[in-house]
């Protein structure tokens, strides 16, 4: 369990990291990058799995089940479309 100030520090450092990683990105990559970051929060799948794994009542199971479907959709869909877009970016020199 991550608690108190440790959590707060993680939050702050991760926030700065996200900002730094994205700043100075050329416009040509805005769409793929949005798609890529959309994929990264697909990690919510992991949380939904844990929630479903600890569900006891029927209602909890149903909601957890929907949660995992949605999370898996986010992760897989985000990956597929980002990969498809980035695959097409080629230089005229043929180098990659």
């Amino acid at each position: 369990m991550i608690e108190g100030f440790t959590a707060l520090y993680i939050f702050m450092l991760a926030g700065f990291t996200g900002y730094e990683v994205i700043s100075r990105v050329p416009v040509i990559l805005h769409t793929p990058l949005m798609s890529g970051s959309n994929f990264v929060h697909g990690i919510v799948l992991v949380g939904a799995m844990v929630a479903l794994g600890q569900a006891d009542t029927t209602l909890e199971r149903v909601i957890g089940f929907i949660g995992v479907i949605l999370g898996a959709g986010n992760a897989v869909g985000g990956y597929v479309v980002t990969e498809r877009m980035l695959e097409m970016f080629k230089s005229s020199k043929g180098a990659r």
Partner: peptide, 25 residues
């Protein structure tokens, strides 16, 4: 936020990174 609730570091970090990167974007 849900990562904090579940005590899941990967969710906290990935979520926060996307949160700030997305805001900038």
């Amino acid at each position: 936020f849900e990562g904090f609730v579940l005590g899941n570091a990967a969710m906290i970090i990935a979520g926060t990174v996307v949160g700030s990167a997305g805001t900038l974007l």
